[in-house]
Nucleic acid binder design. Structure first.
Lengths: 207, 207
DNA sequence: ATTATCTATAGATCTATAGATAATGC
DNA sequence: ATTATCTATAGATCTATAGATAATGC
């Protein structure tokens, strides 16, 4: 019971951390702000996560677990570095699910904002999330390539290899997120992503 | 002469600011670090830019000036929110120049990192660059759409309207920058961008 | 006068450590 | 014993203001 309550507390704290990072980024996030959000003193928070970096690491590990479907099978990625969704479990996403993933992300601006902010920060020097994102993108590109290969074979309708298309697929997902976060009225993220899938297929359907 | 020296100093300071932001983001950048890089005390720096935010604003205004070709004619955008290049001057980019722009960016990781970090941070609340990027992306999408329309008319070979293709074009440029900054060995940014242009044209050439 | 810089410093924060107190589980 | 929290606080920073000093340009 004590253990269970402790786990609950940690989950609460991680949720609050996601919120605070969405609002201020990791560097701008303070332990005090996270603590306040869960009704703890800053020092009380440090009982659960001994340093600020440990808190970030826990957030990223959580993300990894969630992305890989909770089952803990590594290798397959999720849809994107800055969005998330239901884990696959079988090794590679089915292409049609990627559209749903983007729609799902469009309903969760908070979490998209958290990871878009982290991704942006991660390119700066010595950022504690940099290695995480580097590794993750390698995985995600590989998973996307596998998905595309399963769907289209070694050459896509547009003429690209699955590997080269995968880079673009991931780029589009991330890039759309920034444009959409900054101006959700102006950018229909799921529609745009559908447009891109249409290009890969060599034809376009209406949104 | 005093005026000229002053302008020089300001330019030096802006250059140093770009570097420090690339390394630590805007929130992580300190006036002291910028000052040190130009051999001034932190308080000496504040003689030129009275607040930290004024320094950021100057960086962004500089960028705007550079992007619009230095001539000060508004309306046309540059290639991208997180890269830069020679200004157009005539209102819209020619499509073939976009590829060169990406190649140019690939030779300047520092500046790409500065603006990628800023873009990432800008999605957080009350970030002083948020409005800048929102406005700029609106402009850039419009300029891209105009470019595409000039090249292909109202329907691209792939079937998209210029406006809908423009969103993707910008997304690809940004998204590629993050992947490339995190892992330049793994991602050939210019090649990937060429692949995307090929998709828009409905055919693909080798890199 | 104005410009360029500096020293001193106020006033805020921030992270993390130390050590106390109370409750829970053996 | 262990767990959960708290108060107190050290030690670092950071931004920005105040005010002095020296040089430059009329």
């Amino acid at each position: 019971m004590a253990r269970a309550r402790s786990e609950e507390r940690r989950a609460e704290i991680l949720g609050a951390t996601l919120e605070v990072i969405a609002e201020r980024g990791y560097r701008g996030a303070t332990l005090g702000a996270v603590a306040e959000r869960v009704g703890l003193s800053q020092q009380g928070l440090l009982h659960y996560f001994p340093t600020k970096e440990a808190l970030l690491v826990a957030v990223l590990e959580d993300r990894d677990r969630w992305d890989t479907g909770g089952g803990g099978r590594g290798g397959a990625g999720d849809g994107d570095g800055a969005g998330d969704g239901p884990g696959g479990g079988s090794g590679a996403w089915r292409l049609e699910l990627l559209g749903s993933l983007v729609e799902y992300n469009a309903m969760r601006p908070g979490i998209v904002q958290t990871f878009s902010a982290l991704l942006g920060e991660s390119v700066t020097e010595d950022h504690p999330a940099r290695e995480f994102f580097t590794r993750r993108y390698t995985q995600v590109r590989a998973a996307m390539a596998a998905t595309l290969r399963a769907e289209y074979g070694d050459a896509l309708p547009g003429g690209l290899s699955p590997e080269r298309a995968a880079v673009l697929l991931v780029a589009v997902m991330d890039g759309l997120q920034y444009q959409w976060l900054l101006d959700p009225e102006a950018v229909d993220m799921p529609e745009a992503f559908g447009d891109f899938l249409g290009l890969l297929k060599g034809s376009t359907e209406d949104g």
